[in-house]
Every structure is written in structure tokens, then in C-alpha cells.
Design a protein around this nucleic acid. Structure first.
Lengths: 170, 170
DNA sequence: GGAATTTCAACACAATTTTATATGATTACT
DNA sequence: AGTAATCATATAAAATTGTGTTGAAATTCC
């Protein structure tokens, strides 16, 4: 698998969740809340949200009554930005980003393919804003409700890593 | 980074290398040879080539004078096949391939995006055969020769993991 | 037949990164 | 002051990315 890491996946869901709560002047959302709704551990969310804060995609409010909010409106945040923050870049291999990484570039056909594939992927992710993702989600939920949910909503979640482990823990 | 693993990267270069040596009736190529040319350890190449053999993309010939050859002509092997063998699939997340993986699918916008992005990526990789990659490589080499190589060919290679390590070992 | 060459197989080991969990300190609101 | 939340750091399990070793099996060459 060409792995999109959990950071990227959880982080995207975190941001969609924040987008869902985003309204003018709405109170900050606490991580416990997101943790419950998305079924991701608070501790891990804390780690994931740090780079998002540094990148100024989210704002934090400390102390009682605090929490997190999007730093900008959902329509002003692109999926690509989120992934670049959390995955380092949308790139598939280091040697595309980092010209010092590899001196084989001149004669490496693979290099050209990975570079172009990375661009294709980035362009795809660049299409969507958080607002778009939110709309997709609402639509899907409505559809699921309308023709009855064939697979009733379980507690496991998309992109979640801690299911199906040797250790039954958690 | 949305990581294309070393298996996929090294395996692709391995296959391009085999394609380069592929001519009707040409002798099998030994791993030592590929190891020297691509600067990848023999031990690791051995691991990588096993699934390629099982998938019948390469043939092995044992004993003295033996080695490996492509099982089919370079124009009959698609990059996508190689990556699917080595990466498991061209998929970005498990929940797209494995419907049992996650029950959030119905209401998960992210799921839809990852699934579609996976398809985009697969379609891209599906365009190229080993013959195409070989042509690209020859062209690049010719270009590098014609206008003088600005960055002289080093010994490090694209997608190689054992450079820039804390332990200088290798 | 025997020596050399090469794949094939099965381990053991280790460094690094990813994927988390645990604990406690710090900040700021009420 | 008390409490709720972020912030910071330590720890650990698991996967990835390799290397090392030993030997068996097949094939060619002498």
C-alpha cells in the first residue's frame, strides 16, 4: 500500500470535525469531544493538532472553556494544506522534494514517474476545501438515512488503526 | 509524506534494470549485478524479488549461469502490476480495499476522497509499461550526456534508504 | 564426478519510523 | 482557588527497512 499515514487520515477527520462545528462565534471544540465523535484517542489528537496549530490552520484557546477552532473559514482551507502539514508534503518520495537526496536523478526513469505521480496526487487534493468535504459528508449522511443504512453505523472508524490488533486491548 | 515504500521503489528500479538487459535469449541477470548497478543490497533484492517471482513477473534460473529475467517482454508489463505486487495495492488506505475494515464509510467524506485519490494514482501508474520507463531512462541519459552533466553521477541512488544515517554503517 | 556458481530458504538481529499511551506541568477562565 | 483545557515529555509496541549467517538445492563447467 502506498501509505497515507494515520496522522494524515486522522488529521483530516479532525479538521472536518472542526469544520462541522465552525460557525461565526461558536465556542471552541475540546479534544475530548472530537475524540468521542471520531473515536481517536485524545493523546494522539493532541500530537496531531500541534503541527496544525503551528501551521496556523487551527487556533487554540487555553484554560477552562477553551478548545480548538479553525483559524479560517472551511472554504479557505484546502485538503492539500492539511496533508502537507501532517505528511510533510504530498510527495511520494523524498528524492522529488529534496534535490540533495539523490544524484541518480539525471538517469532515473523512476524519479520522473514518482515526481509526476506526486504532482497528480497533489493536484487532486488541491481541488477540495474543508467546505467541500463537509458538503460531501452531509450528502452521504442524508443518503444513508434516506435508503436506510444497510450496514448500521458501527463504532469503528475509517482509517482507524487500533482495530484488529493481536492485543485485544482497547 | 505519502510514502511509496522502498520495496515499491527498489522493485521498480530492479524491474527497469531487468528490462534493460532483456533481449531475446539474453542470459539471466544475477542479483549481484543489479546490486552493483542500482546500489541496493543483495539481501534486500532477494526479499523484493520473491513476490515478483510469485506474481510471475520475473523468472528465475538456478545454478551456475542462472539468474533472473523478465517473464514477459517489457512492453507487456505495466508499472501498476509491479506496484500492486510490492505495495499490496496502489491503494492509499486499507478501508478502500477492505470493506470490512471500517463501518464509517457511509458517513465519511475522507473515505470517498481517499478512494478516488487511489483511483487517480492507479490510473496514472497504469499508463506506463516497463518499455516506456526504459525509453524515458534512455532519453534522460542521452540528454545528460549531450549538455554535460551538471551534477556528476554520484554513487547514491534514487529512493535509497541507507544514506544520511546516524550510523555511517552501510 | 567434483568444483564453482547461483538461487532459495530460514532464521536472527538491529536501527528507525510510525503509532500510539501515560503522566504531569502550565495556562487561563470562572 | 479551583477547574478545565492545552502543552510537554517520556515511554512503548509494532511495522518498516534493512543486514548477517548458515546452509540446501540446482545447474554449469572442467
Amino acid at each position: 500500500m502506498i501509505k497515507l499515514s494515520t496522522k494524515g487520515r486522522y488529521g483530516t477527520r479532525l479538521m472536518i470535525n472542526l469544520a462541522g462545528h465552525f460557525k461565526a462565534g461558536q465556542d471552541a471544540v475540546i479534544l475530548k469531544n472530537i475524540s468521542d465523535e471520531e473515536d481517536i484517542s485524545i493523546r494522539y489528537l493532541e500530537q496531531i493538532i500541534i503541527p496544525l496549530k503551528i501551521a496556523k490552520l487551527v487556533k487554540s484557546i487555553r484554560g477552562a472553556g477553551g478548545g480548538y477552532t479553525l483559524a479560517r473559514s472551511p472554504s479557505k482551507i484546502r485538503l492539500c494544506e492539511i496533508l502537507e502539514v501532517l505528511e510533510g508534503s504530498c510527495c511520494l518520495v523524498e528524492c522529488v522534494d529534496d534535490s540533495d537526496f539523490c544524484r541518480r536523478t539525471d538517469s532515473c526513469a523512476a524519479h520522473e514517474i514518482w515526481a509526476e505521480a506526486s504532482r497528480v496526487l497533489k493536484d487532486y487534493f488541491d481541488q477540495f476545501t474543508l467546505q467541500d468535504l463537509l458538503s460531501i459528508q452531509e450528502k452521504k449522511k442524508a443518503q444513508a438515512r434516506s435508503h436506510g443504512s444497510l450496514r448500521p453505523a458501527g463504532r469503528t472508524s475509517c482509517g482507524q488503526a487500533h482495530r484488529r490488533r493481536a492485543s485485544g486491548a482497547h
